[in-house]
């Protein structure tokens, strides 16, 4: 390298992006969302308003005799709804298909020209975004819910740690699913179809519109194990309201971890195929 103030090329040598690159990308993801404060306010207000609506519907189905429904009591159900409203923002269940748009317009080639693959770039940024969402979009609905209703507080200390792990895994599962929807643009260009399918299935089978335990038990277990949707909303909330023993909770974490590994591997494979298509056919 020459003097300090020149544009001389970097001396040829081994140089590879380190973990700092991912931290910096995550910080940028955090900062990006922190820039739009009004959007954050709008989102938490919306999530809170819908919290009232959803909880009102839930109360209507509670069995008057046992004061429970599908194994949840009144307080657990309140927590399920309000923490769920916060979780939507953390996992970012509904996001604009930005990456699909980059594929459609061809901007994705600038992502390919970086020394880090596009999926890792997006994942790091998404984790940064999720960090910001925990501080804003999760906290506000939970506080609102706690002020107005009697929420269920976990009895076991370890539940908090398990819930934190589960939320992280849920974020990764949700990221992967969204990524797959977006990557469909390599072949379809317009991803409104897959996007709509994801929105509907994740809401119905993921525990957002109602807990999956409202389905017959066999179906609920089948959904939890055999589909990734409950790993996004249902499992973290079941862990938070301590449905089942610590062993069951650990088992649920295992299910989530399994989906994370499977889906990230699938994302990587799809990205490779998509890149191959782009690189060989020229998009």
């Amino acid at each position: 390298m020459r003097g300090d103030d020149s544009l001389a090329p970097h001396a040829t040598g081994s140089r590879a992006p380190s973990y700092r690159a991912y931290l910096a990308l995550a910080a940028a993801g955090f900062q990006r969302y922190a820039t739009y404060r009004q959007a954050t306010v709008a989102a938490v207000v919306t999530n809170s308003v819908f919290g009232f609506l959803r909880f009102a519907v839930m109360l209507a189905v509670i069995d008057a005799g046992t004061r429970t429904v599908a194994g949840y009591d009144n307080r657990q159900l309140a927590t399920f709804v309000w923490a769920g409203q916060g979780l939507i923002g953390v996992v970012l269940l509904w996001a604009l298909p930005e990456f699909a748009e980059r594929i459609r317009t061809g901007d994705v080639i600038t992502d390919l020209l970086r020394p880090i693959d596009p999926m890792s770039q997006l994942l790091a940024a998404d984790l940064g975004r999720a960090g910001y969402a925990v501080l804003t979009r999760f906290v506000v609905p939970v506080v609102v819910g706690a002020l107005v209703f009697d929420l269920y507080a976990p009895r076991r200390q370890v539940t908090y740690a398990l819930f934190a792990c589960s939320t992280l895994l849920a974020t990764l599962v949700c990221f992967s699913c969204r990524y797959l929807v977006n990557a469909a643009a390599y072949w379809l260009l317009d991803v409104r179809g897959p996007q709509t399918a994801w929105t509907l299935t994740s809401g119905i089978f993921g525990g957002l519109y109602f807990p999956v335990w409202f389905f017959p038990d066999a179906m609920a277990i089948g959904l939890i194990v055999a589909t990734p949707f409950p790993s996004v909303i249902q499992i973290p909330l079941d862990i938070l309201v301590e449905r089942g023993s610590p062993a069951v909770q650990l088992g649920l974490l295992g299910v989530q971890a399994g989906w994370v590994v499977t889906l990230l591997a699938l994302c990587r494979w799809v990205q490779r195929r998509g890149e191959r298509k782009l690189v060989i056919q020229g998009g």
Binding site: A16, P17, A24, L25, P115
Partner: peptide, 16 residues
């Protein structure tokens, strides 16, 4: 960070 550029090198090029 993405390109793992040493801080002094980065600062020099940016100043330029």
């Amino acid at each position: 960070h993405v390109y793992a550029v040493p801080a002094t090198e980065h600062a020099g090029r940016l100043a330029h």
